[in-house]
Design a protein around this nucleic acid. Structure first.
Lengths: 151, 151
DNA sequence: CTTGAAAAGAACTGCCT
DNA sequence: AGGCAGTTCTTTTCAAG
């Protein structure tokens, strides 16, 4: 198992927030030289702790005004209907994330739209017509704080 | 307002999935030269459509086995109790994301833990003792598909 | 728009404490 | 383990067609 000290954790956290930072810049924050920092990052990378690097979109600049979380309970379950549902939901461009969950809902969707009228269109014409959909609950995003994680 | 053509959209989408790709590599996918691609990306970047670049953590490698979404309804609302709640929830290291929402819940939390017993500890000792908490609903993540977005 | 080349910066290596 | 000095590679920028 991988051993992590406080500096490793701090490096991971910093890279989660902004992956653009170079090894040199990161090192200065911890009084480490560029190669020392680089070696630590390489060790973490080789251990596979880093997943994909992605860039977030600034949704406001793209005319996206509302983000809504939908909790969906399926009416009919079973292997086939799950796959049908997942295939159909993947075809909706406004759906950013599809999470298969266990609990109150069966699926949770993160959906974006330009405004509420636009969201209503997506909801009525795309989401409510998905195969097997039973109950739908919605939460509109007001604000969001993402953090590095527990490590 | 920023004008986007299909290539711009495809570039954005590709960068959302993997921000490591160089302008040259991206360009080859669309039969564009490296400088042409680079200029398009720079134009998008200057327009502010790209938010922070982050790296995802491979939670399994870090001993994190379960991800749970909590929907929380506050018992007492008002400006003070919201701020109290947000401050307290930010102090829980297992909380990855805090979303203030409008609808069935007041807050949604993305919480990670090593396993279910560990999650129960977090739930009982940290989450259920948060100030103002009323009702809590949980969904355990089974699988997740993230996509580029609606643009 | 293209190709080609130069400048800047980051990544990587070896050797040393 | 960390630091220093150097090399290599990529990214970024510019010149010219």
């Amino acid at each position: 198992m991988l051993e992590l000290d406080d500096i490793d954790r701090a490096l991971m956290q910093a890279l989660c927030v902004d992956a653009t930072q170079s090894a040199g810049a990161l090192g200065r924050a911890f009084n480490l030289s560029q190669p020392a920092t680089w070696r630590r990052i390489k060790r973490l990378r080789d251990a596979g702790v880093f997943g994909p690097r992605r860039v977030d979109l600034n949704l406001e600049k793209l005319g996206v005004g509302v983000t809504v979380f939908l909790g969906i309970k399926l009416a009919t379950k079973g292997r086939v209907s799950l796959e049908d549902f997942e295939r159909a939901v993947s075809a909706i461009p406004e759906v950013q994330t599809v999470q298969h969950v266990l609990g109150v809902y069966d699926y949770r969707l993160r959906v974006v739209a330009q405004d509420l009228p636009d969201f209503e269109r997506v909801l009525r014409r795309r989401v409510m017509t998905l195969p097997g959909v039973g109950n739908i609950e919605a939460n509109v995003l007001l604000s969001e704080e993402r953090r590095a994680g527990p490590i």
